[in-house]
């Protein structure tokens, strides 16, 4: 899976979290969502993104796959219209 953010109308980032305006919709993003948008200015592979996320936020609890969590976060962003997946 690869991901790239789509252009948004405007955004505000505070303490690693953000609020973005996409069209007429305002979307509040967590630190992970905000980071993923920051990292996907150009196409990025999910494995690369997973490394970047674990560098920043640490590894997930035992029994959870960091890659699967990254994929889930990207899919959530896709559903909100904020990233495209390839």
């Amino acid at each position: 899976m690869r991901a790239r953010r789509v252009p948004v109308h405007d955004e505000v980032v505070r303490d690693g979290e953000s609020v973005v305006l996409l069209g007429r919709q305002v979307i509040r993003l967590s630190a992970i969502g905000t980071t993923l948008l920051e990292l996907t200015g150009d196409w990025r592979d999910v494995d690369e993104l997973t490394v970047d996320l674990t560098d920043r936020f640490g590894h997930p609890p035992t029994g959870h796959s960091a890659t699967e969590m990254t994929e889930a976060a990207l899919q959530a962003l896709q559903q909100q219209g904020l990233v495209e997946l390839g």
């Binding site: 505000v12 505070r14 305006l21 069209g23 305002v26 509040r28």
Partner: peptide
Amino acid sequence: IPTLDAIAALTPETSHLPEMEKPMQ
């Protein structure tokens, strides 16, 4: 309300906000 949450809550209660320059800022 923290500022980001306030922006998210207030924006639906605005008129023509997206037509402004840098509306979230």
